[in-house]
């Protein structure tokens, strides 16, 4: 379990998170939704240990996150940043192998376990067939899968993703959600910022942020309501059921 307890964060004099308390469980996908500037990215970054809240505490397996060693934290958390075009034109497999860095000692060569983890991650993400190709030659969707494979190669207990569906076409969005679902089925916890409300409706849990405050948190069926959406986004939505799924339509 990861728990945020009363965390508040101020960046450059601006209250980004205010007293956010939330518990996340493994084996589930939690979508974090809210308007631009609501604090979604800040929350994910705080959970990943990238920014330290001024007050409150983030706990992981019962210990405070900032008391864990960098290496332990790196093995437990896989973070998929929003931007992150690789700086160098490395091959797909070289990129995925970076996910094994927390498992390797300084100067140690990759072990058999590293190779198996990399290959498994590339099979799951359907990227193995272009393992030797360099990043520059891949399409946006292929790159997104390679980056996801990098996270999976580290075999983390938690996957924290910041808008992983941005710039992906519908089939690639579907594939990415399927990868999250597979990870959750393997007992990993997935926490992801999502702007696509239809995609968010496919998560298990929803955390709604508004002006840095968590205004609702719980199973999608309870939290994805017109009232919550109106409070979060300041506009009206209709929620339509179709074939057992929900479509969220913003009113003009």
């Amino acid at each position: 379990m990861i728990a945020a307890r009363n965390i508040s964060l101020t960046l450059a004099g601006h209250d980004v998170l205010r007293n956010v308390t939330a518990e996340f469980r493994r084996g589930r996908i939690t979508a974090v939704i809210g308007a631009n500037g609501a604090g979604k990215t800040s929350l994910i970054r705080a959970l990943a240990g990238l920014i330290q809240p001024q007050s409150g505490q983030i706990e992981m397996v019962g210990a405070a996150l900032n008391e864990l060693s960098h290496a332990d934290r790196a093995r437990m958390i896989g973070y998929l940043p929003q931007d992150g075009e690789p700086a160098w034109n490395v091959s797909a497999m070289e990129l995925v192998s970076l996910g094994r860095l927390p498992h390797r000692n300084r100067f140690a060569l990759p072990s058999g376990r590293d190779a198996i983890a990399v290959e498994t991650a590339m099979i799951v993400t359907d990227t193995l067939h272009f393992a030797a190709r360099t990043i520059d030659t891949l399409s946006g969707g292929e790159r997104a899968r390679v980056k996801m494979a990098r996270v999976l190669a580290g075999d983390p207990q938690w996957i924290l993703a910041d808008e992983p569906l941005a710039n992906l076409d519908p089939p690639h969005q579907r594939d990415m959600l399927a990868l999250f679902r597979g990870a959750a089925a393997n007992g990993k916890g997935v926490i992801t910022v999502l702007h696509q409300l239809d995609a968010a409706s496919l998560a298990d849990d929803l955390l709604v942020l508004r002006n840095g405050e968590a205004i609702a948190h719980g199973p999608v069926r309870q939290v994805l309501t017109r009232e919550n959406l109106k409070t979060a986004f300041g506009m009206e939505f209709d929620i339509v059921e179709h074939a057992g799924r929900q479509a969220i339509i913003g009113r003009a």
Partner: peptide, 20 residues
Amino acid sequence: GRGLDALTLGEDAARTLGFS
């Protein structure tokens, strides 16, 4: 070298891979 490799993915990703 290892830290430079991790930085290929950007500073945030490098830090979450355990590098300062």
